[in-house]
């Protein structure tokens, strides 16, 4: 793929990662350009979540080059990584809301720690703005335990949006949700991409989610990308493993 004329926000070359004797990623190459939403599909344990954890600097690669916004995440200093992370939003599979804090405190937490010059009114305005974006302003004083699964996902996304990231990483955004809530989350991902002009990586098993949110799809299997392209291109791939993955998903979605 040639993206020379476009802004590449994430560039990964020859990425490998093992846990003990288990080799999870075996030479992953991918490039993501500004404003692009890419869905990464793959079976459980294929290394999808490991990939975005490496991108966000939570895990270190064994070898390969991982560049995010032009910086190699495993080579930069802790301070530089902290500054880079302000530009990366990470939506966790189980939302990872701080369960001892209210929704307001959850959203205020990253903001007050990274923008210490903001006054109380500015913080409150920012919180209300992102809660409005995700349609959950009424939950502002609730505890995470009082929210439904879909609401928790949306608050998790709101918490990342409050820092106005350039890149969004979604780990299984629709896992464990009912079909209607899945559609709401898919719409929210698309809305975020348009409104904030973010580039996104969406880790998912859900073909509907991939089709509705991403303009590019990649299938990760046995530690490597099997197929990359538009949803239709990958869907029509003659690769046996890719076809098996699609067939399996359709059987389970019936």
């Amino acid at each position: 793929m040639n993206h020379e004329s476009k802004d590449i926000v994430i560039s990964i070359k020859g990425l490998t990662k093992s846990f003990g004797s288990l080799s999870v990623l075996q030479g992953v190459d991918i490039e993501i350009v500004k404003g692009e939403n890419i869905a990464i599909l793959g079976r459980s344990g294929s290394g999808k979540s490991v990939l975005i954890k490496i991108i966000s600097g939570l895990l270190k690669p064994d070898s390969g080059i991982v560049k995010v916004l032009g910086q190699e995440v495993d080579k930069i200093s802790a301070k530089e990584l902290q500054e880079l992370r302000l530009k990366i939003g990470f939506s966790f599979q189980n939302s990872a809301l701080y369960d001892s804090m209210t929704v307001r405190e959850n959203l205020a937490f990253p903001l007050v720690r990274n923008k210490r010059d903001l006054d109380k009114k500015a913080v409150n305005d920012a919180i209300e703005e992102v809660l409005n974006e995700v349609g959950l302003l009424k939950t502002i004083n609730q505890m995470p335990s009082e929210l439904s699964g879909g609401q928790r996902k949306r608050i998790g996304i709101a918490r990342t949006l409050i820092l106005k990231p350039e890149i969004m990483l979604y780990d299984e955004p629709t896992a464990g949700l009912d079909p209607i809530t899945c559609i709401e989350i898919n719409n929210l991902i698309t809305k975020v991409q348009k409104q904030y002009n973010t580039s996104s990586i969406i880790i998912t098993h859900d073909l509907t989610c991939a089709k509705n949110t991403a303009n590019k799809v990649a299938i990760l299997m046995d530690g490597k990308f099997l197929s990359t392209g538009s949803f239709e291109e990958v869907f029509n791939s003659q690769n046996v493993n890719v076809k098996t993955f699609y067939d399996y998903n359709f059987i389970n979605n019936k």
Partner: peptide, 21 residues
């Protein structure tokens, strides 16, 4: 128990990726 619970529910990772130490 508190930190362990935060660790296994990825709350500590969430703090880290939101640029908080």
């Amino acid at each position: 128990a508190e930190l362990g619970s935060m660790k296994v529910t990825e709350q500590i990772d969430a703090m880290e990726v939101s640029a908080t130490n």
